[in-house]
Amino acid sequence: MFKKIIYSLCLLIGISIHSQSKGISFQKIDLEAAKAMAAKENKLIFIDLYTTWCGPCKLMAKNTFTDPRVGEVFNKNFINIAIDAEKEGVNLVKEFKIVNYPSFLFLDHTGKLVQYDFGYYNAEQFLGVGASVLGKVSVQNNKTLDQVKGKMVGDIISNFTAKDHLGKTFSLSGEKEKLIIVFIRGQWCPYCNKYIETLQNLSPELQSKNARLVIISPEKPEFIEKTINKTKTGYTVLYDEGYKIAEAFDVLYTPNTETLNFYNSRLKDDFTKSRSDNSGRLPVSATFILNENKEVVWRHFNPDYKERASVEDILKNL
């Protein structure tokens, strides 16, 4: 009898723990760690900014965050962290001018605000808030190949910074020369490697044209090393962490499922581990020429990765 009672208690405790785990899983990490995790896992960041004296904050924690449906959506799509606004959240309160609690910050992996909400929501309502956030990001970041158009002649490119494989920082605003911006898919792409080798023919002409060529890769520094070793290039190759440069030039797209499955099975770690997340997104292999004012004065944009800008056309338009 005693054994049965113990067994029943253990079963009830197990069920209780299991049910609690179905709600939102809040990570015990700071914002910087959340940003790194969000980039790696291709997720957004959800911050519950609360205070210990706030009644609606306690109700959210008790009723809404524990709902299994809310947990399923938020654990799948967000890195979730709860921050005390009067302790470790003081800087966030100042930055986002928070006056209401609870406040909910939805950020991308760079810390940029996607959506802000506050107040008490029941589970159904909060699922709607989550859907609104995910809908905004889906429109922004998950374009198909036929939806990306590339920046047009006359467009001004906003400043961006990125590091090369040696950790040296490149800043667009600091460049005084004309720039040739070349996007590649990665060191696993034979067409990219061959094209970089071809571009070496430009090198003797660039100084007289007051121009610099910069290659943009979605791959991490250790994989960029492979690009450099394979092509023997002397050009700067930048790691486009988080695809922010590809997004700025509107060349970022998500391949279809069939293509992604092929790359994942054929290329394995060269594809799955080379980039800042697991989304499979890639840049169109486009080339842009920017003048000294960071204005696009010429471009070659072809969704077919086998078609690249010729050396002759680049020189003609410098």
Rank of each mutant, 00 (worst) to 15 (best):
F2H: 12
S8D: 10
L11A: 15
S16W: 09
K22F: 09
S25D: 10
F26I: 14
Q27L: 12
K28C: 04
D30A: 07
L31A: 01
L31P: 02
A33V: 07
A36D: 06
E41R: 05
N42R: 00
K43A: 03
L44V: 03
L44S: 07
I45N: 00
F46A: 12
F46G: 04
F46R: 01
D48H: 14
D48S: 14
L49C: 07
T52F: 05
W53Q: 14
W53T: 15
C57L: 08
K58S: 14
K58M: 13
L59R: 05
L59N: 04
K62A: 13
D67I: 01
D67N: 12
R69A: 13
V70A: 02
G71P: 02
E72G: 06
V73G: 04
N75A: 04
I79R: 02
N80A: 12
A82W: 02
E86N: 09
K87M: 10
N91Y: 10
L92D: 13
N100K: 02
N100H: 04
S103E: 00
F104Q: 06
H109M: 09
T110H: 08
G111I: 08
K112F: 04
V114M: 10
Q115Y: 13
Q115H: 11
Y116A: 09
F118G: 01
Y120S: 08
Q125H: 09
F126C: 00
G130F: 01
A131Y: 06
V133G: 05
K136N: 01
K136S: 02
N141F: 15
L145T: 08
D146I: 09
V148L: 13
V148W: 08
G150T: 12
V153R: 12
D155I: 05
I157E: 07
F160E: 06
A162Q: 05
K163W: 03
L166G: 12
E177V: 11
I180S: 08
I181D: 07
F183E: 02
F183I: 11
P190T: 08
C192Q: 12
K194N: 15
Y195F: 14
Y195N: 06
Y195T: 01
I196H: 07
E197W: 03
L199V: 07
N201E: 11
K209Y: 10
K209N: 13
A211L: 11
R212A: 11
V214M: 09
I215G: 03
I216E: 06
I216V: 07
P218I: 00
E219Y: 02
E222R: 02
K230R: 09
T231V: 15
T236S: 09
L238H: 07
D240P: 09
G242L: 10
K244S: 13
K244H: 14
K244I: 15
K244R: 12
I245T: 03
N256E: 14
N261G: 04
F262C: 01
S265V: 08
L267W: 02
R275T: 03
N278Q: 11
S279M: 11
S279C: 11
P283A: 07
S285Y: 01
A286N: 04
T287A: 00
T287M: 01
F288G: 04
F288W: 00
I289T: 00
L290Q: 03
K294E: 01
W298K: 13
F301P: 00
P303F: 12
K306S: 11
E307V: 13
E307A: 13
V311H: 07
K316A: 12
K316F: 10
N317C: 14
L318G: 05
